[in-house]
Amino acid sequence: MKINYISILVLLIISLSSCSSDDDAISTDLTAASPGELAITFDNQVGDTDFVLNQEFTINSQTVTLNQLRYWVSNVSLINDQGEVIVIDDSYFLIEETDAISIQDGAYEYPATKRETITLSGVPAGNYTGISYAIGIDSKYNDNLSLQAGELSQLNGMTNISWMWHTSYIFTAIKGKIVNSESVLKLETGLNDSYRELTLNFDQALVVNASDTSDLLIKADITGMLQGVDFTETPVIGASTPEAMNLMADNFQNATFSLEKATDENL
């Protein structure tokens, strides 16, 4: 991940020490801000069982195996106990557990990947009471694939360059098969109407400061993502099944994420 301001702060410190004689005062100011690190883990589960690729799970009364679970987490902001909202700029993160993926009809291969933790550096010290984020990509970036921010990329198979010829991002992708029928499951959301924001509140304030990394553990329940989805009726969900896509987008907003644990190691 990239958070530019951190490198700029580093540059600032370097440049101040190289060109200014009274850097002490400003350095003290910076120390007073003493930003910390926050690691956010999205723990993918099926109900209360840890999700494993290609393992049989019963979802919606059907036995399925999944070889791909990917979703964009974007526009993260943190809420502190003063009611202030700290917006994390350029926060576009791809959370994924996937086998190797053939991209562009086999033109190349994206390697098998498991990635469930994002680390935010330079988070201002404070007591945080909640986090907001979105699933999907906001219209500014979704409408223009040539704009670059965070982890947005045209090279990882999460763009629709031929899907309906809507040149935009795939927001979420769940792929696998129904075990009994061998029927393929390809459940995707995308297009601006599927963008959803949500907020999780913490029971207890989470302290962030310079002395240690604080951790957020967020449960992502796949049964929630797929709640009400009829695998027999719509084994393929995408732009041509707008109702099913809307249902899944709503599920990501309302039925998927819950706070498992917020810990600051500094206690």
Binding site: I3, N4, Y5, I8, L9, L11, L12, Q82, G83, E84, V85, I86, V87, I88, D89, G122, P124
Partner: peptide, 14 residues
């Protein structure tokens, strides 16, 4: 509600 953007830090730094 106050909203801070971390990008302000960039401007300040610059």
């Amino acid at each position: 509600m106050k909203i801070y953007r971390l990008s302000f830090l960039i401007l300040a730094a610059l």
